[in-house]
Design a protein around this nucleic acid. Structure first.
Length: 364
RNA sequence: UGGGCUAUCGCCAAGCGGUAAGGCACAGGACUUUGACUCCUGCACUCGUGGGUUCGAAUCCCGCUAGCCCAG
């Protein structure tokens, strides 16, 4: 009897091809589209000169019937609201910068979907992520960077648990993005040329400031922009409008570019400085997660990625204190941002990661 | 009220008789399964105002207005 796998189908090319590949490999495949936020976006197929508005659900359903697998829609709005949107809003209010995709992966795409799938008798869940899973020598499962480091999505998957990884398949991780589109085309899948998703899915217009106001029902309170000496140099529109390293939108015409160096929720201040002031040589990470490794040791060397599109920087582990630890970079890194994730790698394998609490050592 | 100085894009600022540099800000786009960074493009037919000189002025002259400084 073939293994049963539930594929999370977003209606995009990647997950569509993932379903197709699994089917080809002989799995008993079930397609599931998760309803996660209120207003389903009507993807406009602006390419090809077409203008037919197709929803994600319809696309997924079409693909499913085309490759001959059942397709279901599951409602995950409650989890999504609680684990992703509420978290997203809360973090910004605390002066931090959240990464909703990571939270969504861990709690919605995996925790919730996996649980429901197992209840349905499935052995695995699968997605169209560009990464692969490997069982290490120590018996632990870990995410490995995709072959095409270009589209690699391992960073956003660093906090999946061992139990989740054990029941996960990522069939597209072994291919390059171009190859995936090619397969979709060869199979005549209607989503072959659908544009890659981008921006925060639940904020289609990308105006997250307005989203926060609508979600909280209140306007962000204004405050002061101060320099490193504490001198007030302007007014800001509310702490939630900024993130470390940001340049645009400050409305500060000082003759030279200036950037956000730090956000201070206690005093409602946003510290401004020059580009060199936003570099840090070390950082404190908390809420440590373990993937390929089950512990971090002082003196340990590894590669650390500070944000999604970061090539990574070598660092050394210092002061491990239970759930948190400090790491020191070989070379300063730009814009270490509280709230974002640090992900550790060794030979393309995800060791684990944590949430950035604070960066240290700018030019101060 | 005397004397001096200055008025050029939202901010700073070139220009010194030949037909408006640049920086910052801002807007749009590219990039991107987060926020950013980065990159590309755009951004004063007009130089406080009214006259005059000149083939031609933001640039020279006169008046007015405003701001700044010194003297009262």
């Amino acid at each position: 009897m073939s293994k049963k796998v539930v594929v999370g189908m977003s209606g995009g090319v990647d997950s569509s091809v993932a379903a197709y590949l699994l089917k080809e490999q002989g799995y008993d495949v079930i397609g599931v589209t998760m309803e996660i936020w209120q207003n389903e976006p009507n993807w406009k197929m602006e390419q090809e000169g077409g203008c037919c508005g197709l929803s994600a659900v319809e696309d997924a359903r079409r693909v499913a019937s085309m490759i001959g697998i059942p397709h279901y829609v599951m409602n995950f709005r409650d989890v999504f609201q609680k684990k992703v949107i509420d978290y997203f809003v809360r973090e910004y209010q605390l002066g931090r910068t959240p990464n909703p995709c990571i939270a969504c992966n861990r709690y919605v795409k995996w925790e919730a979907l996996l649980q429901r799938s197992l209840e349905l008798g499935a052995d695995f869940i699968a997605t169209g992520h560009y990464a692969s899973i490997k069982k290490c020598a120590n018996g632990r499962y870990a995410i490995v960077k995709s072959e095409s480091g270009y589209k690699d999505q391992s960073y956003a998957l660093y906090n999946l648990t061992q139990e989740q990884l054990k029941h996960t398949l990522m069939p597209v991780g072994e291919y390059e993005k171009d190859r995936i589109r090619q397969i979709a085309e060869e199979q005549g899948l209607p989503v072959a040329h659908k544009p890659d998703s981008q921006e925060i899915c639940f904020i289609p217009d990308n105006n997250y400031k307005r989203f926060l106001e609508e979600e909280t029902g209140e306007k962000a309170s204004e405050g002061n922009f101060v320099d490193c000496m504490g001198t007030v140099i302007g007014r800001h529109r509310g702490i939630t409008h900024y993130t470390v390293g940001q340049r645009k939108g400050l409305n500060l015409a000082l003759g030279h570019p200036v950037f956000v160096v730090e956000i201070r929720p206690e005093t409602n201040e946003v510290v401004i400085g020059q580009n060199e002031d936003v570099y840090a040589e070390s950082l404190l990470a908390a809420d440590l997660q373990f993937m390929a490794t089950d512990q971090y040791e002082e003196g340990q060397r590894m590669l650390a990625k500070i944000r999604y599109s970061d090539k990574g920087q070598m660092c050394t582990v210092k002061q491990v204190n239970g759930d948190s630890m400090k790491i020191i970079f070989d070379q300063k890194v730009r814009a270490v941002t509280p709230g974002q994730a640090v992900v550790f790698y060794q030979d393309h394998i995800v060791l684990g990661g944590g949430t950035i609490v604070k960066g240290f050592g700018g030019s101060d």
